[in-house]
Design a protein around this nucleic acid. Structure first.
Lengths: 88, 88
DNA sequence: CGATCCAATACCTTGTTCGTATCGCTCTTC
DNA sequence: GAAGAGCGATACGAACAAGGTATTGGATCG
């Protein structure tokens, strides 16, 4: 599992659309599709339901999203606490 | 910043020795040195003090370690909550 | 049935990461 | 103080991962 997979996942979960998520991430659509798929493969579970209108979170995806957001938040906090010397 | 950098960082922080950290991570020494350096470069701050006996955390590194551990813990929780269907 | 919108795939190019070998430095030991 | 041992850092080539463009397959709608 990589931080990139997690970032892409959160973007897709929030946009419910691979294309819009890709735009938001400043990459093209295929890489996003691939990262999501590889994440699902690694976890051995489907996180999204594919509909003709986009992607919708499945229960497993909802659960994963909670932790995924915390991961990104902690990463951000880690960066901040080093950049702002002394503070934490 | 990548999850790999964070994993390598925690290993080095705990071992206080790049070689031992590398062994624990099942990789050779150079990759560990490189990831640590690239992490420091990205953050724009030195995290370790290089001594003739190994690596010792600097104050910035100590602060970073707290969050780094939380990140890895959350990643683990994310995996678990998907694998164990229904639970969380 | 043709057009449209979606994610998925094929193919190639580019960027990262790794491992082996080696360097430069510091401390130890004789 | 010269030789050796131990540490992290660097050079370089090979392997892997990621991205982009172009295209496909499938479902919906006019």
């Amino acid at each position: 599992m990589s931080l990139r997979q997690i970032k892409y996942f959160v973007a897709v979960a929030e946009e419910e659309h691979v294309g819009r998520a890709a735009a938001r991430l400043h990459v093209s659509q295929p890489p996003v599709t691939r990262q999501i798929r590889s994440l699902e493969d690694e976890l051995g579970a489907r996180l999204f339901e594919r509909t003709p209108w986009g992607m919708r979170l499945l229960p497993a995806g909802e659960r994963f999203l909670v932790h995924a957001r915390r991961v990104l938040h902690e990463v951000d906090a880690a960066e901040q606490c080093v950049r702002t010397s002394g503070a934490d």
